[in-house]
């Protein structure tokens, strides 16, 4: 169990380091540049990172020895629930609670929210904007690291797995409403359910060939009819 905890800590720290380094090297210089420049740079960065892992791990899928027992815990109506599946919830729930506390109650979290609303005003109020943004990127990287370990417990990964997962993550965040933590959770669960039903049900579901189309079609529909996301608030129209 100690080894497992260490794995989480090391991977999260590494994710935090990578993400804040990217922020420091690239995005920080573009702080005053238009949105388009940052977006494009982010696309470029994702390809660079992906190719670094291609260089290290090549094109084959990799897996790790089972960290968690897949022994059954309980069975409800023919559905077996095993330890490794339960483990995901066991980790996710406290992490989400911790994250919510961090963003809502700590100084750092308040700085983060202030910065996202108005970096200039935040700077005037004495918030170190650069440090706050670095922290946000580190936090995001650490969470991605935790997510990656959880994913690895269940599945194989390849150098480009992250790209697909990142897209789904973005979709989930947009679906829930960007900037809204519970929205992101709801969005992610919804996408997971859509995927599971689409691939698992035999009636009314087009099947796994269409999963990605389905997810994106729903994303597009939501953005068109409710651009602020499911739980996002309608912001006053800006000039």
């Amino acid at each position: 169990m100690g080894g497992l905890a260490a794995t989480f800590v090391i991977v999260a720290a590494f994710g935090a380091l990578v993400n804040s380094t990217i922020e420091f090297v690239a995005y920080r210089r573009l702080r005053n540049a238009p949105r388009l420049a940052v977006l494009i740079t982010a696309v470029g960065m994702s390809f660079i990172v992906e190719n670094i892992s291609l260089g290290i791990y090549d094109v084959n899928a990799h897996s790790i020895p089972p960290l968690i027992s897949s022994a059954n815990i309980f069975t409800i109506g023919g559905v077996h629930y095993s330890w490794d599946a339960f483990f995901v919830i066991l980790v996710t729930a406290p992490v989400l609670v911790l994250l919510t506390w961090l963003v809502k109650s700590t100084r750092q979290g308040k700085s983060m929210r202030a910065t996202s609303q108005d970096p200039e005003a935040a700077a005037i109020m004495g918030i170190d904007v650069n440090r706050t943004i670095s922290f946000a990127f580190a936090l995001a990287g650490a969470l991605a690291g935790v997510g990656a370990v959880l994913f690895l417990v269940e599945f194989n990964i390849r150098y480009d797995t992250g790209f697909q997962l990142g897209l789904i993550a973005f979709t989930a965040a947009v679906l829930g409403g960007i900037g809204n933590l519970s929205g992101a959770v709801v969005g992610a669960l919804l996408i997971g359910l859509i995927q599971a039903f689409n691939e698992g049900l035999s009636w009314f579901a087009p099947g796994s060939d269409w999963t990605r189309s389905l997810v994106f079609a729903i994303l597009i529909a939501i953005l068109v009819f409710r651009p602020e996301g499911l739980l996002g608030e309608r912001t006053p129209e800006g000039a």
Partner: peptide, 12 residues
């Protein structure tokens, strides 16, 4: 990866 580097370097 090379295109990614080109994109990032150009934008920066």
């Amino acid at each position: 990866g090379i295109y990614g580097i080109i994109i990032v370097l150009m934008m920066l």
